[in-house]
Amino acid sequence: MSDHLPRPTYQDFTRQAPDIYAALSALTRGVDASGLDKGLTELVKLRVSQINACAFCLKFHLGVARKAGVPQEKLDLLAAWPDAGVFSERERAALAFAEDLTVLDGAAASDDAWAAVRAHFSQDEAMFLTVTVGAINAWNRIGIGLRFVPPAG
């Protein structure tokens, strides 16, 4: 059995699974329409993609984060966000919650992480933040499983 069987590219995925692509994209559009800050959601997507080691999503969302006006210093220090000193309390709560939902360790997301998020986010915002984390985790697993090559540029 060959270890080098070809896998679908990102373009193949969008072409061969258009309904799935549309459904995943609709999650992002729904969060964007909620009014939750785009820079914040992009930081969350980047952190989750770092944890999951999804090169495709990292490259993609770095570009989106830059367009959303996320400062380069935050992008540079995201992997070490707890000690970086450049993230707001709201961002820190979101990043901690995103990590908690991404690295489940066989347990449900902690009450402490939820309480920290709710201290800085309304219930609706926390719900949309949760959708953001779930959606990027889904994209990461698809991108990793199919070994999507990061976009050029």
Rank of each mutant, 00 (worst) to 15 (best):
D100W: 00
E42T: 03
A98W: 02
R29H: 14
C54V: 03
L46P: 06
V48I: 14
A55I: 09
A23W: 08
A84M: 06
V48Y: 00
A113V: 01
L40T: 05
D37V: 07
R7K: 15
C57Q: 04
Q123R: 12
F56R: 04
V44D: 03
K67I: 11
L62M: 10
S49N: 13
A138T: 13
T130P: 01
P6W: 00
A135E: 03
S49I: 11
G35W: 11
Y10M: 07
Q123V: 12
V117M: 01
E89C: 03
P8G: 13
K45D: 04
R15S: 15
S110V: 06
V103G: 04
D83K: 11
E89V: 05
I20S: 14
F13I: 07
A22Y: 10
A126V: 04
D19Q: 15
R7W: 02
P82W: 06
A93R: 01
Q16I: 07
S122Q: 11
N137M: 05
Q16A: 08
A33I: 10
D32P: 02
Y21Q: 11
S122C: 12
A65W: 02
S25P: 01
V48R: 00
G35N: 10
A107I: 08
R15A: 15
L104Y: 11
R118Y: 02
D37K: 06
A22I: 13
E89M: 09
G30T: 10
V86N: 10
Q72K: 14
F56M: 12
A68I: 07
W114A: 00
W81M: 05
V64P: 03
A115W: 00
F97N: 00
G106P: 09
I51S: 04
Y21P: 00
D105I: 03
L75I: 15
A68F: 06
S49R: 08
L101S: 02
T9V: 07
E125I: 11
K74F: 12
A94C: 13
W139F: 14
A135C: 05
W139Q: 06
V31F: 12
L40G: 03
L78S: 02
S49Q: 11
A53R: 14
G30L: 11
V103I: 15
T130L: 09
D124C: 06
T28H: 15
L78N: 01
F121V: 00
V44F: 08
W114T: 01
A53P: 03
E89G: 12
N52G: 12
A119V: 03
D19S: 14
K45E: 08
